[in-house]
Amino acid sequence: MSTRHDITLTVNGERVTRLVEARRHLIDFLRLDLGLTGSHAGCEHGVCGACTVRVDGEIVRGCLVLAASLDGAEVTTIEGLSDSGEVADLQDAFVARNAAQCGFCTPGMVMAAADILRHHPDATRAEIREHLSGNYCRCTGYQAIVDAVESTLTARKEGVR
């Protein structure tokens, strides 16, 4: 019976191989084994959304994914998303709108908001709130976050025009 597993996966475009414990979840793997501390471990039972990262292109709760199951997977964290420039405008809007206060939820919030930019470019304010409903923020009261996402969507659409 094996409690440690060799996995090879791609994290932010880099191929990594590690021996992981079966009980290691993706967020501890990223934070403790790879030193990628942008993803936060909040509630660690799938409620708060602070650990939101992409696996194979879609957002997941990192605390509800077994690292051992990710052999061959492609993982993108806030570090990779930031470096790619994909959400530079969204990040600027977060700053402009004061959408981050203590900042603990922000990486997960940006990952979830990026999902809206990518999959729901025409999202209404209500749809933005709905999409972010699984990401908790205890500081801002959400208005500034929704404002930031909404203004980014609007700016992108105007840019297209």
Binding site: G46, G49, T52, V55, E58, I59, V60, R61, L64, V65, A112, D115, E130, H131, S133, G134, N135
Partner: peptide, 12 residues
């Protein structure tokens, strides 16, 4: 589907 949890959970 939209009633089930949140997008990140629906992806898994």
């Amino acid at each position: 589907v939209p009633y089930i949890a949140h997008p990140a959970i629906r992806n898994r």
